[in-house]
Simulated assay, not measured.
Amino acid sequence: MTTGSTRLSKPARREQLLDTAMTIVRAHGTDGLTLLSLAEAAGVSRPVVYDHFGTRPGLLIALYRRLDERHRAASEQALRDAPAVPREIARVLSAAYFACAADMPEWTAVSAALKGSQEMEAIERELLDAYTDLMVTALRPHSGLPREDLRLRCVGVLGAAEAIAAELNRGRATVATAVAALTDLIVGSIDAAAPQSRTR
């Protein structure tokens, strides 16, 4: 355990605290995560934790943003590694979307703990916009649509993805069937406007 006497830069201390917070959520859920429990687990004083996050919602939002950064980095790497054909790009985007639930259960827990927060709603919109832009950038070379029209289709596809995720959470779908369904929706959406991109 890191002790309070260990000298870390402010960014390094923040990373250490977020790592510790992630461990607490994994072991005890978000109910077990408070500024006090984090300070105790990280071996620092309470003022150190307050200085970084201010409030418990502030801590949860920082954790949510950190999870999103990791998810985005993994998605971008997977896209770089994917063959430059529509179906493979669509499959990678679909797999990345549903990887949140499968690979990062903390994401769902933190999101649920922040439900009803106006700040969280604003952040979710911001992150959804960013993910939409990621999709548009990846798909645009394979679509004849103007950027704004393609973006609107991506917004619609992500709405469908959210509905599929709800079915997945209810046990009415598997990750494999969810990925396959979303892949087909993405491919169908861009193919409808760009028959020349049907090569797979």
Rank of each mutant, 00 (worst) to 15 (best):
R14K: 12
R140F: 08
T30R: 01
P105S: 05
L152M: 11
P141C: 01
R147D: 02
F98Q: 04
A84Y: 00
A102R: 14
L79K: 04
A166Y: 04
C100H: 14
P47H: 01
R80C: 14
T174I: 06
R172H: 10
L185C: 07
A73I: 09
Y50G: 07
E106Q: 13
E15I: 13
Q118C: 06
L114G: 08
R70Y: 08
R56Y: 03
L18H: 03
T55Q: 07
L60V: 06
I164L: 11
S197R: 13
E40Q: 15
A42T: 03
M104G: 05
S189Q: 04
I164Q: 03
L134D: 07
E167K: 06
G144Y: 09
L35G: 10
T132P: 05
E76N: 14
A192F: 03
S75Y: 11
A78T: 00
A90R: 01
L168M: 01
E121T: 07
S197K: 04
D129K: 06
A178G: 01
E124C: 05
V49L: 09
R140V: 04
Q16G: 04
A95L: 08
E88W: 06
T199G: 07
E88H: 08
L134R: 10
G188E: 00
L152S: 11
R70N: 14
I89A: 00
E76I: 14
L128G: 15
Q118D: 13
E119R: 15
Y131K: 12
